[in-house]
Structure formats: C-alpha cells, structure tokens
C-alpha cells in the first residue's frame, strides 16, 4: 500500500533573479514498510526532495504539485499541523551528524525533548524513554548526559537514528546517513538502520549519492538527475539490468566495475539542457534527445524510465 505519494513536485528557488529548478516534476511513491533509495549526484536536488516532504525549505521557494500523506496534502497543511507530522509521522535524519546535533545540549536531552514535546510526558519518563532509545541503537545509556562532541562520528549517527525513530514514525527520511564514516562503520550503521526499520514496520527514504549504500538495503531505487527522476525500479533489477544510460553509467562508475567516470559535468539547475537533461553526456543520444523532453514511461512491472530508447508497455503509462 502506498504510504506517501509525491505528485508532480516542483521546487523552484529564486536565486538573485535566476530560477533554480531543484525539483522539476517529480512523481514518487513510498510504499508501506519499504526502503526506497533515492540516488543522484551531489546537487541534483535529492536533499531538497527530502526537505520538501518535511516542509523544511526556506521562504524564498516556490513549491508546486502535491505530497499526499494519509489523505492530506502536506504542502497545504498549516504550520501547527505540520509540526505534529514532523517527528511523529515522518522522522528525518540530516546528513552530517556532527553539525546536525546541537552542541550545547546533552544527547539525552536531544532525544528526551521529543517525548516531552509530542507526548507530553514528564521529565523523568522522557529521560527513561530516551535511555531505552539509546540502548536500542546500541549505545550505553549512561552516556546520555554527555555532549555531542564527546562522541565519535558513528556514535553521533546512532544518536541521529535514535532521534529519527524516537516517536516511531511511519516514515524515516535518511539523508546521506553514511557520509564521513569509514566502510566498516558504514556497514554497521546501515545494518542497524535497516534492522530497526524492518522490526518496527517503518518505511524509509534513503537519500544517497552512493550506489553501494543503496545496494544492500533498498527494496526499490529511484535515480535522480538535474531535478528530475530518470528511472525507478526494484533494487535488484535496477542493479542487474539498468535501463537508463545514466543508470548504466552510474553503475559503471562504481569502483568494482572499473571506476569509469561519466564524462562531462552535471548541468546547472537554473538552465538545464533542452530536451532530455542528460543528453549532452549520453552515449546513446539521437537528434530527438536534444529536441524533445522524454516522459517517464512504464516499461515493465514496477519499472519506469525516462528515455526515448524504450517504448511504453501496456502495464502502466
């Protein structure tokens, strides 16, 4: 069942007279108890998508489209209602735990305040719940009166997980949860997250630039490029038989596949190329690609791609 549906999401920033189209017509669904990976290069707008769901974008932004959660369009909700959804219904972990934790509050307090605020429980009760949460993410609750700088990067990320899952939300948005961690720590954190998410029936939107991260944990993967989605497919399928040339290149650029970087640079979001946004860098481009903008089409079950190389399949349009 679909838990959250994003329809034609457009996020435009006005930056000194130029319009930056950070998200331009994004359609995406998050199913119940699935882990959805959102993959893309730095600056493609994937973090913006996460923040748009949470309603955490600045005021100089224009948002269009709809984000439907439990029958409500999140983009139309008032601040007060939105606050009830943040944390309680949809949790979020920002990238970079060392700047995302408040340096002058103890980690225990940063978890406990969520209970006091949302559930109205007393100080002691909240502290006890925070301690439980720390235990759950594999930390010593005795350290709850310490400050963020006293913890290692992996520990801080565990605290972020504890905060994100504190109220047992239906969806957790995790933005680059493994940046700055070494590979063994990366694996630990990912295992911890996917374990917790599965055991608590939570859905997760995992935003990352790193295919390796998405690979082990995700059920489905969506590939984003220059503000729009190019391919959505079940994870195994996308990794074994990628459809879009960009996805293919992305897989080829992985270290184990021979580390072949994609030629060219990602386009600017304020003046993306006409036609298909990927065409200047594409190996398979034809004349059509620079003239017409391809639509997202369903080509197989649960597989969608935005490329003229493929024909629409009857199963979905």
């Amino acid at each position: 069942m679909t838990l959250l549906r994003i329809e034609d999401l457009r996020v435009y920033f006005n930056a000194r007279g130029r319009i930056v189209k950070a998200n331009d017509g994004v359609d995406l669904e998050i199913e119940e108890t699935e882990i959805l990976g959102l993959i893309g290069e730095t600056g493609c707008g994937k973090s913006i998508l996460g923040r748009a769901i949470m309603g955490l974008l600045s005021e100089n932004v224009e948002i269009g489209g709809r984000i439907i959660y439990k029958g409500e369009n999140l983009l139309e909700l008032c601040e007060a209602r939105m606050r009830q959804i943040r944390g309680k219904e949809i949790g979020m972990m920002l990238q970079n735990p060392s700047t995302s934790l408040n340096p002058v509050l103890t980690v225990g307090e940063q978890i406990a305040e969520v209970y006091r605020y949302h559930e109205g429980v007393g100080k002691e009760e909240a502290k006890k719940k925070a301690a439980d949460m720390l235990k759950l993410v594999g930390m010593d609750p005795k350290r709850m009166d310490e400050y963020p700088h006293q913890f290692s990067g992996g520990m801080k990320q565990r605290v972020m997980i504890a905060i994100g899952l504190a109220l047992n939300p239906r969806i957790l948005i995790a933005d680059e949860p493994t940046t700055g961690l070494d590979s063994s720590m990366k694996k630990q954190i990912l295992d911890l997250m996917s374990g917790l998410i599965k055991s608590r029936d939570v859905s997760m939107l995992l935003i990352t630039h790193d295919l390796e991260v998405a690979k082990g944990v995700c059920n489905r993967i969506a590939v984003m490029y220059a503000g729009e989605l190019l391919e959505i497919a079940p994870a195994e399928k996308l990794l074994s038989e990628p459809k879009h040339p960009y996805t293919q290149d992305l897989l080829d650029s992985l270290p184990r596949m021979g580390l072949n970087p994609i030629p060219g640079e990602s386009p600017s979001l304020s003046s993306p190329p006409a036609g298909c946004r990927f065409h200047p860098r594409c190996r398979c481009r034809s004349d059509k690609c620079s003239e017409k903008h391809p639509d997202m089409i369903g080509i197989e079950a649960e597989t969608y791609v935005r490329c003229f190389l493929y024909k629409n399949d009857k199963s979905k349009g």
């Binding site: 930056a15 923040r51 955490l56 600045s58």
Partner: peptide, 13 residues
C-alpha cells in the same frame, strides 16, 4: 566587498 554576505541561503534557517 564581503563575498560571504553575498552567498545565498537556500535551505531553511
């Protein structure tokens, strides 16, 4: 003259 002041802030405060 201070370039830092020119940086635009996209994310919410």
């Amino acid at each position: 003259l201070d370039p830092r002041a020119k940086e635009m802030i996209m994310m919410k405060k």
